[in-house]
Computed example of a mutant assay.
Amino acid sequence: MAASRQPAFFTGYGVADTVAGRFETLSLHAGLVIWRTETLPEPGPDLAQDLTDAVFRNIDIALREMGVGDVAMPKKMKVMAQGYLGRTVAYRTGLHEPETDVLARALARNVYGDENLYESADCQRLTRYTRRLHEAYEPLSLETIMARPLPVVVASDVS
């Protein structure tokens, strides 16, 4: 979660410093580490589910602090869970597609709200960052993930 809150995303990548923008950076980071964890041998998949549950518990707390009530919470959480899942599938697909613009288009669509912005400097920078983050997470073992802290790609270091 801390990696998703790096100020550079909101000052240098053009990500909106809003609840929606913060959800985008959280979805990106959590999705990549959860993806790596669920591909590991047992108990990797169980740990991945625990991480997912923890992310959504934190989202629940944040929404309640912002004033979302008990009646509206289930619908809000369902929408956010569906959005998270769609994003993680799109990013995973993009990271393994030989065409380099698949990931950029997914990021542009979700983070910037317009797939046509995939060639923008901000989106290209976020695409490079995402690839570096994936490369940092890909070799992690279950022991490394459980020991923490995870490797952090410093957003301001990616040009």
Rank of each mutant, 00 (worst) to 15 (best):
M1V: 09
R5M: 08
Q6K: 04
A8V: 08
A8K: 05
F9R: 04
F9N: 11
F10V: 07
F10A: 12
T11H: 09
Y13V: 08
G14C: 09
D17W: 10
D17K: 03
T18M: 11
V19I: 13
V19T: 13
R22S: 08
F23I: 01
F23A: 10
F23G: 00
E24S: 03
S27D: 11
L28D: 09
L32Y: 00
V33H: 02
V33S: 05
W35Q: 15
W35C: 12
R36N: 05
R36A: 10
E38K: 05
P41H: 02
P45C: 04
P45D: 02
L47R: 10
A48V: 10
D50K: 13
T52V: 00
A54R: 14
A54G: 12
R57N: 07
N58Y: 00
L63A: 13
R64V: 06
G67E: 06
V68M: 05
G69L: 14
D70W: 02
D70H: 12
P74H: 01
K78F: 04
V79M: 04
Q82K: 12
Y84Q: 00
L85W: 11
T88S: 02
V89S: 07
V89W: 07
A90D: 14
A90S: 13
R92L: 11
R92Q: 09
P98N: 09
E99K: 13
V102M: 01
V102D: 02
L103V: 12
A104R: 08
A104N: 07
R105I: 13
A106P: 09
L107C: 08
N110F: 15
V111C: 06
V111T: 15
Y112C: 15
G113A: 10
D114Q: 02
E119W: 00
E119S: 09
A121Y: 08
D122W: 07
R125F: 07
L126G: 12
L133P: 04
L133T: 06
E135T: 10
E135V: 10
Y137P: 11
P139R: 01
R148S: 15
P149K: 03
P151K: 11
A155V: 04
A155L: 04
D157I: 03
V158H: 04
